[in-house]
Computed example of a mutant assay.
Amino acid sequence: MQEEAAQSAIDTFISAFNASTDSYVTELLSQALTSDVVFWGPLGRSDTVESVERFVLEMRRHPAGPGVMERCSRVDAPGEWARYRWMYRTPDDGPTLVGTDVVHLREDRIDQMIVFAGDVSGTAPGR
């Protein structure tokens, strides 16, 4: 059951990146996130759904053009924590970003999110 709730919240969050209008972004994020969500993103920590909304809107205005965000793995949810992989593709073979997010759920919505952008393949230095 927790995995289904996690997948629903995650997929709703991802759909905000692909919303038909900016105003729909707000609605989708309010369905997926708690109002006091703690978001660790590429630019540091933020503590409100409004700050996550600003981040999503900035991504939608990517210099290469609006991209498409998609979940590209299953949701792995051992209890109230979940993780998944994502990909953000910009139009016309522009930059593609990949990463893994780890989220915590409270009452079927995301209240904590850590974004790990980039591919973590290869070995550690010195090995």
Rank of each mutant, 00 (worst) to 15 (best):
M1S: 14
Q2D: 01
E3K: 14
E3S: 12
A5E: 15
A5P: 01
A6I: 11
S8M: 08
S8A: 10
A9N: 07
I10P: 00
D11M: 11
T12V: 13
F13P: 05
F13S: 02
F13R: 02
A16G: 01
N18I: 12
A19P: 00
S20F: 14
D22A: 07
S23D: 14
T26H: 11
T26I: 12
E27N: 13
E27K: 15
E27L: 06
E27D: 07
L33F: 15
S35Y: 14
S35C: 10
D36Q: 13
D36N: 13
V37N: 01
V38A: 09
F39M: 04
G41K: 11
P42R: 09
P42V: 00
L43D: 14
R45A: 10
R45Y: 15
T48E: 09
T48C: 07
T48L: 10
V49E: 00
V49Q: 04
E50H: 09
E50I: 04
V52R: 02
V52E: 03
R54K: 06
F55P: 02
E58D: 07
M59Q: 12
R60D: 11
H62M: 06
H62K: 05
P63L: 12
P63D: 08
A64H: 09
A64E: 15
G65I: 04
G67Q: 01
M69V: 09
E70W: 01
R71M: 00
C72W: 08
R74F: 02
R74D: 13
V75T: 14
V75K: 02
V75I: 10
D76H: 02
D76S: 11
D76K: 06
D76P: 00
A77I: 08
P78E: 07
Y84E: 03
Y84G: 03
W86P: 01
Y88W: 12
Y88C: 13
R89L: 08
R89V: 11
T90G: 10
T90Q: 08
P91W: 04
D93I: 00
P95H: 11
P95N: 04
P95T: 10
P95I: 12
T96I: 07
L97E: 03
T100H: 00
T100C: 13
D101I: 02
D101Y: 11
V102K: 01
L105E: 05
D108I: 07
R109M: 14
R109F: 01
I110C: 12
I110G: 01
I110Y: 02
I110T: 11
I110H: 04
D111E: 04
D111P: 03
D111L: 06
M113W: 13
I114H: 02
V115D: 15
V115G: 00
F116K: 03
F116C: 13
F116G: 11
D119Y: 13
D119G: 02
V120P: 01
S121P: 01
G126Q: 05
